Computed example of a mutant assay.
Amino acid sequence: MTSHSTDTREGSRRHGVDAGRTSPHGDGQASRWADRLWAAVREGDEYAAVDVVTEALRTGLEPEAVLLDVIGSVQRKVGGEWAAGRMSVADEHIATAINERVISALPGNRPAVPRGRVTVACVDQEWHALPARLVAETLRLRGCRVDYLGAQVPTAHLIGHIHRTGPDAVCLSSSLPTRLPLAHTAITAVQATGTPVMAGGLAFGADGRYARMLGADAWEPDARAAADRLASGLPARPAAAHQAIDDLPHLGDQEYTVVAGASTRLVRETFHSLEQRFPPMKAYNDEQRERTAEDLAHIVDFLTAALYVDAPEIFTDFLTWTADLLTARGVPARSLVPGLDLLEEQLRDFPRARRFLDAGRAALASCP
């Protein structure tokens, strides 16, 4: 098992910001400004970063291009540098905070007559808010009235907001697939108010397959496409409620429910078994032991999410991403396999879970 955390909560998935299609200025001019912003961000100099954006606007780069092709591009680079081990978590936090500050420096656009009202929010427990922020700011620049609720919005509070404000549509963002069950809850709850839902973010798959599976009214891959789709209007939706199993009949086997309910026990027992059966753990210090427990928790979380949507690729993609991350930090990918073996021993009565674990081992075997 690993001795380095693969904590995707702080990882490059957070920064996989889909800025969108390149603007008319995008290929050359925006790229040059992005290089300058990156230099300021890397130095941790928020004043220089604001100056870069201010100058880019003064020289004629459109605000939407600055937002998506400059700031969004830099944030993607932050994620790549972290994943490659060239930025620490502290550096990544500083860079993200500066980009948030720079977004706030963009000019506002208060139209005399707003082009509709849209609520933009992250699903419950999703704290990677920058992708949603980019969508919200793009919509504002295009003349919409936007209620941006930020990260980790409990579904009950989101519904209360909808009842008070009556938006034309709700945009829900999630970056991590482990949030898909909560995203499903939010989608169905919003639709029960008669409000259409657009989903976005890496959690829903590069092609939006999980958004469609969970019943969202629309999905778009980036902020520009989302703004275009909303401008054309989402179909009206009658208020109606339904159950998760209506969208996902495979939940009838109860594997997701049981595994999710036993996740703490699965992590604890797998950790204790590793102590006894994985000799390198005897030399681990307290920090390495803590990181190993975190790694196991992530593995169980992604397995649970894969069971929810019956998509083994969610689990295998996480494992191969983790293997690449560990390899960049000098930890062999094969160190993940003992944990999978021990999990399978505990899940021998769950055929889907065992099949996903087998797929995970096969995926790791193909890693360099």
Rank of each mutant, 00 (worst) to 15 (best):
T59N: 12
F318G: 02
L202C: 09
A151I: 06
S175E: 09
A231L: 03
L57R: 13
H25D: 15
G205P: 07
T8E: 13
Y284L: 04
H4S: 10
I98F: 04
R110P: 00
T188Y: 00
L230A: 05
S263W: 07
R268A: 12
P114N: 02
A206M: 12
W38N: 00
G252S: 14
H161F: 08
S88H: 09
A183Y: 10
A283W: 11
R164E: 15
P111I: 00
H4K: 15
A112K: 14
A231G: 11
A30H: 07
G261R: 01
F318I: 05
A226R: 10
D51S: 11
G360C: 07
L130G: 02
I245S: 06
F278E: 13
A189G: 05
V41I: 05
M87R: 14
L343W: 07
G233V: 01
Q243D: 13
D222R: 11
L343C: 09
D341I: 11
L67Y: 05
V309Y: 02
R133Y: 13
D207L: 09
Y210S: 00
A19C: 12
V258D: 00
W127M: 14
A49S: 12
H242D: 06
T165N: 12
G85R: 14
H4T: 15
T257F: 10
R21F: 13
A241M: 09
R268D: 14
V74G: 04
D358R: 08
D247K: 03
Y148W: 09
H161C: 04
R36A: 08
A225F: 01
H157F: 08
Y148M: 08
R164W: 11
P221H: 12
R115Y: 08
E287T: 07
D246F: 00
L130W: 13
G201P: 10
F315A: 01
T165E: 14
D91M: 10
Q346P: 06
R76P: 05
L319N: 04
W82T: 07
L57C: 04
R209N: 05
V120F: 06
A231P: 01
A353M: 02
G143V: 04
S335P: 01
C122F: 06
I299V: 15
L266N: 02
D358E: 09
T322C: 01
D18F: 15
T119R: 03
D69R: 13
D18C: 09
D18N: 13
V309T: 14
A311H: 07
H163K: 15
P114Y: 03
L274D: 06
D91Y: 02
D295G: 01
E10R: 13
F356M: 10
V74Q: 09
S3K: 07
A260L: 06
D124V: 15
D91S: 10
T22K: 13
A225G: 07
A305L: 01
T8V: 11
A129C: 08
R13K: 12
G160F: 04
V309P: 02
A183Q: 12
G79W: 05
T327N: 13
G44C: 12
A241I: 07
H15W: 14
L326Q: 02
T119P: 00
T188V: 11
H15P: 03
Q29W: 11
W321L: 06
G11K: 10
L230R: 06
F204S: 01
T138I: 05
F302H: 08
A40I: 05
